[in-house]
């Protein structure tokens, strides 16, 4: 890991921006203020304002990557806390996760293939519905570009919180289980933040869905890449 001034400045700046953005979100609890959105916008603005090249900013990237692995392992904790909810609704949850993960992998692969994208980009889009650390590691494993995969993860997350409520309403998905599993399986942590606004049960469902979708997605992504390419 590089121990340059830029690496220290930009990793501290990134974390500090996120902490402030999170504080603002917790204060007002409005979807557009989601800290991932506001912190991203603020950081991009700072980088443009001070004319910082992406490579310089990313010197802190190695440091960030070092936290991805433990972040994945840590997902075991929320899943364990929701184990009773999972046990009670095992069949519908499993059905939703399997349907969602397969639909996401197949549609993502087919659309990118139809439009003639390179194999590397197809493999980068593939893990978009998984939580960031898992998606980046899956992208690495199957031959995609991890940093770009993280961007698609964010696009999926924004889609989930901005368009998700309309889609759910349109399809008459109006139960905690339907909303929670739908948001968590497609839009990971951001979807779970949105689910919190519907209520605690939606949020628990979404948290469980995010974790299980990550595991199943990591298992099925190499298979999907092999089958569909």
């Amino acid at each position: 890991m590089a121990f340059t001034p830029a690496a220290i400045v930009f990793s501290v700046l990134t974390v500090a921006t996120y902490v402030i953005a999170n504080f603002v979100y917790l204060r007002f609890r409005k979807t557009p203020l989601n800290p991932v959105i506001t912190a991203t916008v603020a950081l991009v603005a700072i980088l443009i304002l001070f004319d910082v090249p992406y490579e310089t900013y990313m010197e802190g990237g190695d440091w960030v990557a070092a936290f991805l692995g433990p972040a994945v392992v840590a997902l075991a904790v929320p899943l364990y806390k929701h184990r009773e909810l999972l046990q009670k609704n095992l069949v519908p949850i499993a059905a939703g996760i399997v349907a969602g993960v397969i639909a996401g992998l197949v549609s993502g692969t087919l659309f990118t293939r139809w439009l003639g994208f390179t194999e590397e980009l197809i493999l980068t889009v593939l893990p978009k519905s998984l939580t960031t650390p898992v998606a980046m590691q899956v992208a690495t494993t199957i031959g995609g570009i991890p940093s770009l995969a993280a961007v698609f993860v964010m696009v999926a997350g924004f889609t989930g919180i901005l368009l998700g409520p309309y889609l759910l309403q349109l399809l008459n998905i109006d139960s905690s289980i339907g909303r929670g599993i739908g948001l968590g399986a497609s839009a990971h942590g951001l979807g779970t933040a949105k689910a919190f606004e519907y209520g605690p049960e939606d949020a628990s469902m979404s948290s469980v869905a995010m974790t299980l979708a990550a595991v199943l997605g990591a298992l099925l992504s190499p298979l999907a890449a092999w089958l569909l390419l």
Binding site: P92, I93, A95, G96, I97, V98, A99, G100, V101, I102, A103, G104, S107, G108, F111, T112, L115, V125, K128, S129, F152, V155, A156, T159, G160, L163, G164, L167, L168, L171, I173, D174, S175, I177, G178, R179, I181, G182, L183, G184, A185, S186, A187, G191, A209, A213
Partner: peptide, 18 residues
């Protein structure tokens, strides 16, 4: 592509579980 695929994912997961 990512937006549409995400909505398909959400519809499939939400509909199947409900």
């Amino acid at each position: 592509i990512v937006i549409i695929s995400t909505l398909i994912t959400m519809a499939a997961a939400g509909f199947a579980s409900q």
